[in-house]
Design a protein around this nucleic acid. Structure first.
Lengths: 222, 222
DNA sequence: CTGCCTGTGTGATAAAAGTCACAAAGATGA
DNA sequence: TCATCTTTGTGACTTTTATCACACAGGCAG
């Protein structure tokens, strides 16, 4: 595990902090589809993503869902802190989109390490910053875009995350992520297929137009 | 200014940190309506709110706006950190909703103080946490609520912020905050008036039903 | 092969939100 | 007082999204 840790966080954290994380953190493997954090659950730990893809979601009282963002282990130095600050009830749900590995750190270490390690402060701040930006992106989508554009953005996101233009998922899954009925997604996808941008088959969507731009634009360009 | 500082942050920060803030921070007064931070602007400072109400907003490319949240100086120990992490381009716009006073701190101090003062770390973390929650609240509203419910929530928010059930604003202003056309707001307000929940006059809205609950509910309860 | 389950396609219709056009009411100032 | 500007009210209409109903297709199990 120390090797994994070093591989992903070696360029971010000091040697000593890495060792401390290795010593204190609990390594955990989660299977695809498994729920890592539920809404309302007390979060006594901070998860750091080591490998795989997680999905951070919001849920309303009627059990309707909304994807906030995907979290992916970066080959780059990108930030992989999942969620959570102190010992508080989580307001988001975190689900493993693929099999994944995380390290659970005791929440109380968070503030402690701020005083101790310079790199930790930098990491925490940029993590927060990153998350905030993801939230703002989603906010923009919901507030300013129509469903066709949101769908497109979502497909792009899935291509980015899976690093493949062949997406294996049902219309229903996409509809859930976007919080809209399945029929809407089916219809819009059909429209995209007629435009030659995607190819549809049962349980899979092939993205043909690699840099597929805007879909309809109607008159929003004005 | 030191007195003001102590009054608002005295219970949060150590004496020494307060003194340092006082020494380094630049005190600034902003008039109602003045823009404190523009979108795209490089933020080289972190603003701390001392008094007044600020409004944090998002703007899309077509200049449509959306209120993210109000920020109010708290008599309580509530968190009053406005926005911004490091020397980055701001993704939000901050406008003074009332006359306000802020202290501008150099952005680089942010990480520096993390190592130096325990209270600073706690403050920064809970500030971020607070902001994140505000964003999630707004996300919920946009994603899961219909316009009538969003309007209601917004009115409540204004009552909370102004500490008065008499709101002095135009329908257009509300419409801008909610990113919807003015006609929609006018119609919904009229509906509320017919239900005896508000009293409308030019440039003012009186909230009659102090704990006015849900408006229509149609069948969303199911 | 034959059901059966899951996923997809599609029409009809309803509800919500946005657009357009314009009237009328209050406020302001010459 | 009259002209003018801002704010509000409202009808008619369009677009977008949601809801309902059901047909049909592909894959899998018996």
């Amino acid at each position: 595990m120390f090797k994994e840790l070093t591989k992903h966080y070696g360029r971010i954290f000091e040697e000593e902090l890495l060792r401390e994380i290795n010593q204190i953190g609990a390594f955990k493997e989660v299977k695809e589809g498994q729920v890592l954090i539920k809404i309302g659950q007390y979060v006594k730990f901070m998860p750091l993503l080591v490998s795989g893809v997680l999905k951070v979601m919001r849920e309303d009282t009627n059990n309707k869902e909304l994807l906030l963002y995907f979290l992916q282990d970066g080959h780059t130095n990108s930030i992989k802190w999942v969620w959570g600050t102190e010992r508080k009830k989580s307001r988001v749900k975190v689900v493993a989109e693929t099999d994944a590995q995380v390290i659970m750190l005791p929440a109380k270490k968070m503030t402690e390490w701020l005083l101790k390690y310079k790199s930790w402060g930098t990491f925490v701040l940029s993590s927060y910053d990153h998350r905030m930006n993801e939230l703002l992106d989603m906010m923009d989508s919901i507030a300013f875009l129509k469903m066709d554009e949101r769908l497109l953005k979502h497909l792009k996101e899935r291509v980015r995350i899976t690093k493949s233009t062949m997406l294996y998922c049902t219309h229903q899954e996409i509809a859930d992520d976007l919080n809209t009925p399945r029929e809407v997604v089916s219809r819009l996808l059909k429209k995209l297929e007629n435009m030659g941008k995607v190819k549809l088959q049962r349980n899979q969507i092939e993205i043909l137009d690699s840099k597929f731009r805007s879909l309809s634009h109607s008159k929003r360009t004005a």
